[in-house]
Each structure stands twice: as C-alpha cells, then as structure tokens.
Design a protein around this nucleic acid. Structure first.
Lengths: 136, 136
DNA sequence: GCTACACTCTGTATTAATTACAGGGTAAAG
DNA sequence: CTTTACCCTGTAATTAATACAGAGTGTAGC
C-alpha cells in the first residue's frame, strides 16, 4: 500500500526535503524505522514520495518528544502488521498521550505569555510570574 | 529568588518525587541545567523544594521535545541573567514554537482518532485513513 | 559498641540517537 | 577528460541518559 512507485529522490534531496540530516536517514534505515530503499545500478539509494512522507512523519514525531521506539510503534500501524482492534487500542493510547502533551504545552505557553506581558511595561517580571514557569 | 531554604530531599527522594532518574540528576548538575546542591557534613547532596520544581520542569520540557539546550534557554529566564526585553523576546519565541508543536500534535491526534473510529466497526481502516497519519 | 541493610558518594563504562569524518566511487557540466 | 558535486561505506565523535563497581554513611536492632 505504501509501496514506492518511482525513484524520485536521492539521499541528499530527501534530506533537504524532509528536514532530516543526511546521515540520520542512513541511521533510521539501520534501526528499521525506514525501509532499505531500492538502489540504482551504481548503488545509489533511490527514494520515492512515500519515503519522504514517512521520514517527515518521523521527524515531526521526534520533535514532539516521541522516542524512536514510540515512533516505531506508531509506524507499525501504518505498516499493517496489526489487527484492527490492536490498531484501535494503540491509536487511543497515543491520543491520551497527545492530550497530556498538549495540556502541558498550553500551561507553559500561558506562563511564557504572562512573563512577556509583564515585561511589556519595561519592568522585569516579578518572582511570582517567573516562578509560574516552574509551577506548571 | 529561587534560593534553597531547607534541606528536604536526598538525591534518591528527589529522583522519586521528580520522576527523573537518580543518575540523570547528577548528569544535569554536571552540564549546568541543575545547580550544584549544598552538601551535608558527610558530602550528601541536600535538595530543597526549589530543586524539585526546577527538575520537574526540566523533565516535562524534555518530554515535550525540547532539547537540553532549549530547556537551558528557558531556565535562564528563571535564573534572572537576562534583561527584561530579552526575557520578553525569548518568551515569545518559545510561545511560537509551542503553538507549532500544539498544532502538530492536534493533527496527529485527529489522524489517530479517525483510525480508531474506523476500527470501531471491526473493519480494518482503509489506506486513506492510515495514510492520513503520514500526511499531516 | 557491633552488624546489617539501605542508602550515599565518585569515577568510569555503556546505551541510544545523532552527527561527523575519511577514503574512495560516480555523474555530468564544461 | 578534468573538475565539481554529488554518492557510497565504515568508523569515530557527540549528546543525552543510564549502569556499574568499589567505597563511605546512617541508623535500626542486637
């Protein structure tokens, strides 16, 4: 289903498009997060748009604080190695995790916004406001 | 301002309370994310409630995908080494970053929720739904 | 005071995730 | 046909976190 059709990207281009470091792509292939891509006659890696999507998903997931193992778990849903009710369970567990992350981020956002607001008058924000960042 | 008053936690207790691994605390002290705590006569580390708050903040920030360096930047606001307009700037930059993270998380949440919903009927979610996870 | 147990200390080693480098091959523009 | 810009592999170094080894401390019960 997510099979690659065409050979559209070389490794360097894929790195640029996805925002993932060139060497990191090779590392992801080594640990199995990314599949081993087909090769050209000379041995050059040959990526498709599907590789780009998958890699971008990995990057964003990592930036959101998921470990490589957790990203692997999410990708197993895509790879189709699970039955339907297992997919549902994994999906809902991750939704819970995401809701918690969003709440924490919003708390931090509010603390930062009140710090910025206090600073608008040109006055250093007082201890109470600064400490709120740590109280979340 | 965030000076420690009392000696309330030993390193083990702080680890348990904060959810940060015992050894990781020592590591954070080494790289300067946490201050070197005062010591007892025998050389035991002696932590206060302020250390606990700071450490908990670090843990949560890490879980939200901030690097140690980024967490350090946030903590410099707390440590008071910046002028007011600099604090404001750092705060607002981080708010932007947070808004982006929240948006990404919500997209992922929606994709996961539609996968779970499709699975409710006992049917394997179709390719379109699964691929949506990678399309975000 | 002793003995045992759970904790602490330090320094070093390992793991995970990533990035950098060295030494060489390939494609293709001029 | 040479120069430039890629690509390949294997290995080394970085960053973030943990694990381990060998020794000291504190205290509860004898």
């Amino acid at each position: 289903m997510t099979a690659s059709r065409k050979c559209e990207y070389t490794r360097g281009k894929l790195a640029k498009e996805s925002g993932v470091n060139l060497e990191t792509i090779r590392f992801y292939e080594k640990i199995g997060l990314m599949p081993d891509p087909p090769r050209s006659a000379a041995g050059y890696r040959c990526y498709s748009i599907d590789h780009l999507k998958r890699l971008t998903f990995i990057r964003r997931s990592r930036e959101l604080g998921f470990t490589n193992n957790e990203v692997g778990g999410l990708l197993e849903m895509v790879d189709g190695s699970y039955a339907c009710d297992e997919i549902k369970q994994i999906a809902l567990e991750n939704v819970k995790l995401i809701i918690k992350k969003v709440l924490d981020l919003k708390k931090m956002q509010q603390a930062l916004e009140s710090m910025a607001a206090e600073c608008s008058g040109g006055v250093t924000p007082d201890c109470a406001i600064i400490d709120r960042l740590l109280e979340t």
